[in-house]
């Protein structure tokens, strides 16, 4: 009797042990177009992932990276840059840029940024020059996208985040963990900072406006309910600040349409600014419509071709999230599931 008990326990242990991790369906055909979502995961938990969504078929592959590579991409993936059908993924907590074939999801290699490399945002100029902001090194690291090697480090301000390119210059937001108020301008001939421009508090996002100016998003002090942020415009030729739109409720990431409508995340949900006349609608889509748990949106992107607004919903930040799709008037259409903390959304067309 005693041995029977023992034997049964042993058998039970093998049954329980044999449960395996399930994977989503691998794409049967190479991906040619669709939506990629970079899911940050939870810091220190090694649960970043890339989600792929095909709007035409509504197929979702929540674990696009791991289902192909049979391993997790790393810790705290922050953003991706698409270049020549490859995705260069900044994996902050893993101090690397992971290069993946966007058509298959296969990893093509990594760029090891070393201890404290902490990559945040990437820009690739051509097949031999790529740049990434290194949060903990307070620098921009230049790398070679073809050879996957490090070229140089260019010191900028503290805790840099967003990066954009214009006129053979890079424009880097120096967040300084919420205390910063400047952007650094790097000349790509001299590979050094040639100007520092004062903007609003906590600059984090940098992009190009439709008229070729540099558009910088500043979030203000997150610890203060009344702190102001806003969007600032810099002339890339004169390197001077030309305009600004000051906003409350901590403006964050944004998406700009060809019609000059700027959709942006704030504490209330999604706001919208008509840059033609600066008319601002602070609550274009309410936060509770996006995230009925905490009213917080996490990422935003605009599909110009289909005129759809994609908004990342992190739910309570500790479970799988989703992306909700709206039309350009803010009407909810549909959603798809993602992994934890959908932090960045990209449209891919081969």
């Amino acid at each position: 009797m005693k041995f029977k008990i023992l034997f049964t326990l042993l058998i039970a242990s093998f049954i329980f042990y044999s449960c395996s991790k399930e994977n989503s369906t691998e794409p049967t055909n190479p991906v040619t177009k669709g939506v990629f979502v970079i899911n940050e995961g939870l810091y220190m938990q090694n649960n970043s992932e890339i989600t792929f969504y095909d709007p035409s078929t509504e197929q979702t592959i929540t674990n696009f990276y791991s289902q192909k590579n049979q391993r997790i991409i790393g810790d705290n993936a922050n953003s991706m840059y698409i270049f020549e059908n490859k995705g260069y993924v900044a994996v902050d907590g893993s101090n690397k840029i992971e290069v993946i074939d966007l058509q298959t999801g296969q990893s093509l290699g990594i760029i090891n940024l070393g201890q404290n490399g902490s990559p945040r945002e990437i820009f690739i100029l051509n097949s031999s020059r790529g740049f990434v902001t290194s949060f903990n090194k307070h620098s921009v690291i230049e790398f070679n996208p073809s050879t996957l090697s490090i070229v140089r480090e260019i010191p900028v301000g503290k805790y840099p985040e967003g990066i954009a390119y214009a006129n053979f210059k890079l424009f880097v937001a120096n967040s300084d963990l919420g205390n910063g108020n400047s952007i650094s301008v790097i000349d790509l001939n001299s590979n050094s900072v040639i100007r520092t421009i004062q903007v609003g508090r906590n600059p984090r996002f940098v992009s190009l406006s439709n008229d070729g100016r540099i558009l910088i998003g500043c979030s203000g002090d997150f610890f203060s309910a009344t702190s102001l942020g806003g969007y600032y415009f810099v002339d890339p030729n004169t390197l001077t600040k030309t305009d600004s739109i000051i906003l409350s409720h901590h403006p964050q990431d944004f998406a700009l349409t060809k019609d000059n409508l700027l959709y942006y995340i704030n504490d209330k949900g999604i706001g919208r600014i008509n840059l033609n006349n600066k008319n601002t609608d602070t609550v274009f889509i309410s936060g509770m419509t996006i995230n009925d748990m905490y009213g917080i949106a996490y990422s935003i992107a605009y599909d110009e071709i289909n005129q759809r607004l994609y908004v990342g919903n992190p739910k309570n930040f500790v479970q799988n999230g989703e992306v909700k799709i709206f039309d350009k008037n803010g009407n909810y259409l549909k959603k798809f599931e993602t992994k934890i903390n959908p932090g960045a959304i990209y449209f891919y067309r081969n």
Binding site: F16, C19, K21, N23, G41, Q45, N47, V318, Q319, I340
Partner: peptide
């Protein structure tokens, strides 16, 4: 000692769990 699968996330995503172990 045998430990069955342990989830790391609140929604018990198997992808991000710790495998059973003896």
């Amino acid at each position: 000692t045998y430990y069955s699968r342990r989830f790391v996330t609140e929604d018990n995503d198997v992808l991000f769990s710790l495998d059973p172990v003896i």
